[in-house]
Nucleic acid binder design. Sequence first.
DNA 1: TTGTATGCGTTATCAT
DNA 2: ATGATAACGCATACAA
Lengths: 331, 331
Amino acid sequence: MSITIKDVAKEAGVSVATVSRVLNGSCNVSDESTKKVNETIARLNYSPNFLGRNLRKCETNVILVIMPTSEHSLYSKIVMGMQDYAGQVGYDIITAVSYSTSTAETRQMNMLFNRTVDGVILLGTQYDADSLNKLAENYNVALCCEGVKGANVLTVAVDDEQAAFDAVATLIKKGHKRIGFIGTNSSAISSTARENGYIRALKEYGIEIKNEYIYKESYDYDCGGRAFEYFNALAEKPTAIFAVSDLLAISAMHKAIDMGIDVGKDVAIMGFDNISMCEWIIPTLSTVEQPCSKMGELVVAKLIENMNKTTKDNHYYTVDHRIILRESTGD
Amino acid sequence: MSITIKDVAKEAGVSVATVSRVLNGSCNVSDESTKKVNETIARLNYSPNFLGRNLRKCETNVILVIMPTSEHSLYSKIVMGMQDYAGQVGYDIITAVSYSTSTAETRQMNMLFNRTVDGVILLGTQYDADSLNKLAENYNVALCCEGVKGANVLTVAVDDEQAAFDAVATLIKKGHKRIGFIGTNSSAISSTARENGYIRALKEYGIEIKNEYIYKESYDYDCGGRAFEYFNALAEKPTAIFAVSDLLAISAMHKAIDMGIDVGKDVAIMGFDNISMCEWIIPTLSTVEQPCSKMGELVVAKLIENMNKTTKDNHYYTVDHRIILRESTGD
DNA sequence: TTGTATGCGTTATCAT
DNA sequence: ATGATAACGCATACAA
């Protein structure tokens, strides 16, 4: 089999307890012993078996991040922020992709139940509020990026309603009065919150809310294009469009270009997320930036805090968003 | 503490051994006991502690996938293929991102050394051949997508040389004689193999190889644009460009558009990978498709096979590529 | 078919 | 400062 702490102890001429002490940086061990042990560890190329260690300590120092898709650079950036911070405080981040299926998500959650990880962060989830609340009673769970209505679970996200308000207000201040909204029928709280922000902005600036300017389907790429076709067929076409995701905005934009419409001039388009692609396409896309690193860091920090608490923090923390103007809005 | 197999046994009025047998689907247990045990498991909401189980069984049934970036949809698709297959054979896939740093990669490899996972699949790695060979002696390691020269380690990838040959041959058959190549200076075997394929294609079709048509920098997005600027400044500009990655091709394409050049007509551009973005941009990008699902499935299958072998399979398996023609080559 | 007992590799407690 | 040993939760060899 593989080499164990026992082998090291025997070779170094000390007890396993001493080796363990060296391994865990206890101060109650002589310099001589420390040296001997470290030498043999290096010589035998010993690496402690974490299954044994974790079993004994009842902790793994590993956090699992479950995301609906790995093709979303927003998530990638958030996970990066998580890893940065987690590494600093001695935790590892592992990720799993659920592909938005509850079966995969359930399966992955097993790592929480079977004690393979200390906690789970969900970047958008299939779970409903009740399930989440029950889950959070016994386990360390956090939501990031996407809250769940009615869930009293630690959450970190932008203020979606306010962010959408700011985005639409920006368009209005540019002179737009007919503003289309591309949303989704998903149960995602962010989608409805952004719709609410859109509506509030119109109201506050005294613009009539028209149902024909609200198009809702799904987050799939093609839906953006379909939305644009729909808007473009209206008698009074919108002069600006706000989409709840960059991908939808990009899809709409490309449909517009296909139709020979000058995006940024004939029509202004604004997305949400600030994924990398926004700067890679022509024209570049105006959008609402989510502070990915900060979100990742904060949710990990709060989750770890929760691990040592009996009464868990279940706040909904919001982080600052930022409007970024690029060519698609004529900037 | 949390509920254990002992609690279940006591509650069900049987021994822990019987509970364990039920848990592991042993046939040597009476229907009555099975029923009683399953009932109490459900009632107590018991979930076995895998740290104990894994420690005992010396296996975790978990495979770690380390990738340089999670922003590459090629990798996402491959991991999806891995998960599909792994799930079927009772394995879990977890992922970690190294951000192309050897420190992160080394840290993540610890999960292999400390027995937290049964094997590791590297989607492009910082390790050199010697390190990999030594690693593969004692652990279950596989490379996917990107081989390492001189490494005798289980590898699954496309035939990069032949794929590049086919791509360039396709351009030649379309009548192109001045073909630019955008590569990288990275040590990645795929990059040089694709360059070799490019050169062989020119040779076989009797076209002179000119150094000025070969531009090499890095995989960063901007390099594609710089490459195009360079080509466009030549006295005899290439009429077609083959890039070793879709992102480089897209960057070059956008630079061309910026310069008012009609991609697909004035210049043909072909990428490599067939990432989702190829179909999302205008014009759509011709490219070489890598069979992601198949690659993921194959590498997991072979790696699991290796786990039960004393002499490990260290073959370099190639999977079929496919040329996809879209608007960027005038199709 | 079932139960008892052992050990997986580690840390922590208790002596010394 | 160090060592002997119990315990973490589980699967399994062995006995019954």
